[in-house]
Design a protein around this nucleic acid. Structure first.
Lengths: 334, 334
DNA sequence: CTGTTAGCGCGTTCAC
DNA sequence: GTGAACGCGCTAACAG
C-alpha cells in the first residue's frame, strides 16, 4: 500500500541511501541521479514518513506547547506568534490546553515528552517543584513563555508584570487620583495576579498613599467579574475616583458596570489596566492600558527555543520584553 | 542515556514482550509479573517512546488541524472544542495556521500527512480540486470543520450560513426595515462570504424588496472595514435604516462608526449580524446577532473524526448544527 | 559520489 | 502466561 524509500530506490535503480540523500538535500549526489530519483518519487507518489525519520534521527521537528486556554484572546495571540516562528524554522507545534491546572499541566508535559518533541514551550500558572521534576526528566530544551519562575533558573520570556502595573497606577496618581481601587486576579497566579498586585501596591506606597484593603477586589479575569467588582466599588460609602484592573477584560466589565449605573468614564471614574487586547480599542470609551506585546512574547520564546534546540549559544536566556502605556480615553485627571 | 523497554525487561527479569503487554494494558499477564514490571518502570523512570510506538503500530494518536488563524476569536473557540474532545479520546493535535491561503493549506496538509497523523480536521477557505487531490493522496479520515464543500462529498460539520443570514435579515424586515445595507465578506469565501450574502439576497427577495447594489459593501472581516462600510452608508443620499454585517466584528465596527457620527444604534440605525463572539455582549448597545455554536462545531467535528478513525459507522457524515437568533439591543423596529 | 549495514524503540505474530 | 524473532521506514556511519 504505502510506498517506501525502498520502492523509490528500486524504481530509480539506486540504493535507498541515495534516495535518502536527495530527499534530505544532501549535496553529495550527482545531478543526474538526483533527477532520476525525483522522477521515481513523482511516479510513485512517494511521501517520506516523518515517524520513521524521527525514530532514526531522534528528531521530530515538532515542539510541544502547553497553554492555559487557546480560546482566551491573549494566549491565542501568543500562540500565533509561536506558530509563525515555528513554521519559519520548519517546526510544527502540538498544542495542549491545561487551564493553569497543575495536574493537567504535568500530564500534558509528560505526554509531550513521550511524543519526543524537540522542545517545549510552557505557558502556565505557577511553576512548582513538580513541574521542575517533570521538566528535568528529559533533556529537551524548555522555555517558559508568558510565565515567570521565581527561581530564575529556566529560560523564559515575559514582560515585567510588576512594573507594568506600577506604570498604570502611577499614571493614575500623576493625574491626581488618590483613591484608587484595584480589580486583581488571584494572588496564586504569579504573573497576572500577584505581580500586578505588587505593582499597584508599590505605586501607592511610593506616592505616599496609604493602602486600603477595602479597595482591592479579587476577580477571575472574566468580564463579569470586572462588572461585579466595579459594582462593589460603586456601592462603597467613599467610592474610588479611579480603578486599576489587572486585565483589560475585567476593565471593560468595570467600564460597562459604571456606565450602566449612570456614571461616565472617565469623567466620573477613570479606568486603566494591563494587556491591550484587540477589544481595548473597540469599546467606548477606548481603553487606556499598558500594552504587553503578546505576539512578540510568543515569537521571541519560539525563536529562543530554536536556538536552544540547535545548541546555539544564547546571550540572554531570560528575556523581559518592554511594555508600553497606551493612552486612550478611559482615564483622565481627577 | 534513554531507558528503553529492553532495559525495563532486564531489570524486571522478563522479556520485552511482557513489558510491552503491561504498558499497553494487555490482560494476558500475571498480576505478579505485572507488578514486577511496574516496579522496574518506576525504578528506571521509563517513559515509552511514542515515535517508536507509532512506527511499529502505524498509529500516532495525533490528529492534524489546519485552521485559518488561531488568533481569530472564532477559530480559537472552535479549536478549544476540538482540543477538548481530542484530549478526551487521548489524541493530541498538531495545529497549523494557513490563513485561508490555498498554497499554504496544501503545504501543511502534506506535512501533516508526512507526520502520519491518524486524522485531519480541515478549516479553510474554498475546497478546490487541489485540496481534494491532497486529501486523497492518503487514506486517513478527514473532516471539514466550519468549512463547506459544494460537492458534498466529504464529511463535514458547519452551520447553514445562508439560512443564518436569511434569519438575521428577515428579523430586520419583520421589524419594518425596507432599506437594508449589507457589509459582506469577500464572495470568494464560500461560507462567511458568499453564503451569507445569498441569505441576505433571498430574504430581501422573499419580502419583495428590490436589491440595490449600492447597499452592499465588501469588507475584510475586520473591525476597521466595518467602520468604513458604515461610513459609506452614512454618506449615502438615502441611507439605510438597518445594516446586516456578515460578522460580528464588522458589525461592531459599524456600530461605533455610526455612534461616532453622532447617531444612535438602534434608534437611528439598526445593526445585526452573525457569529456571536464573546465581544457581542460586551459592547454597548449589546449586539443582536445569529449565534453559531463555535465550540460545538469543533467538538462535534472532532467527535466525528474519532469515529471515522476507529472505523465506526457514522449515521450522518455531513452535520449541520443549528444556529439561533440572539436578540439583544442593536436592532429595533423602524 | 554511491551502496551496505546497523540500528532507532517498540508491537506483534508465533511458538512454547 | 511468557519469550524469541521479525519488521515498521528511515538515518547514519562506514566502505569503496
Amino acid at each position: 500500500m504505502t510506498v517506501t524509500i525502498y520502492d523509490v530506490a528500486r524504481e530509480a535503480g539506486v540504493s535507498m541511501a541515495t534516495v535518502s540523500r536527495v530527499v534530505n538535500n544532501n549535496p553529495n549526489v550527482k545531478p543526474q541521479t538526483r533527477k532520476k530519483v525525483y522522477e521515481a518519487i513523482e511516479r510513485l507518489g512517494y511521501r517520506p514518513n516523518a515517524v520513521a525519520r524521527g525514530l532514526a534521527s531522534k528528531k521530530t521537528t515538532t515542539v510541544g506547547v502547553v497553554i492555559p486556554d487557546i480560546s482566551n484572546a491573549i494566549f491565542a495571540e501568543v500562540a500565533r506568534g509561536i506558530e509563525d516562528i515555528a513554521n519559519m524554522y520548519h517546526y510544527n507545534i502540538i498544542l495542549c490546553n491545561a487551564d493553569k491546572r497543575k495536574e493537567k499541566e504535568i500530564r500534558v508535559i509528560n505526554t509531550l515528552l513521550e511524543k519526543q518533541v524537540d522542545g517545549l514551550l510552557f505557558m502556565g500558572g505557577a511553576v512548582t517543584e513538580e513541574h521542575l521534576q517533570a521538566f528535568s526528566s528529559s533533556n529537551v530544551p524548555i522555555v517558559l513563555c508568558a510565565t515567570t519562575d521565581e527561581r530564575g533558573t529556566m529560560p523564559s520570556v515575559d514582560i515585567d508584570h510588576e512594573a507594568a502595573a506600577f506604570d498604570a497606577v502611577s499614571r493614575l496618581i500623576a493625574d491626581g487620583h488618590r483613591r484608587i481601587g484595584m480589580i486583581s486576579g488571584t494572588l496564586q497566579d504569579p504573573a497576572n495576579g500577584y505581580a500586578r498586585y505588587q505593582g499597584y501596591k508599590r505605586a501607592l506606597e511610593e506616592a505616599g498613599i496609604a493602602a486600603d484593603e477595602q479597595l482591592v477586589r479579587i476577580g477571575n479575569y472574566k468580564y463579569e467579574s470586572g462588572m461585579e467588582a466595579a459594582q462593589y466599588f460603586l456601592d462603597l460609602a467613599e467610592r474610588p475616583t479611579a480603578v486599576f484592573a489587572a486585565t483589560d477584560e475585567m476593565a471593560i466589565g468595570a467600564i460597562h458596570a459604571i456606565q450602566d449605573a449612570g456614571l461616565r468614564v472617565p469623567q466620573d471614574i477613570s479606568v486603566i489596566s494591563v494587556d491591550n487586547i484587540r477589544m481595548a480599542s473597540m469599546v467606548r470609551p477606548q481603553l487606556t492600558t499598558v500594552a504587553q506585546p503578546m505576539y512578540d512574547i510568543g515569537a521571541v520564546s519560539m525563536r529562543l527555543l530554536t536556538k536552544l534546540m540547535k545548541k546555539e549559544s544564547v546571550e540572554q536566556s531570560k528575556v523581559v520584553l518592554p511594555h508600553e502605556l497606551i493612552i486612550r480615553q478611559s482615564a483622565a485627571s481627577v
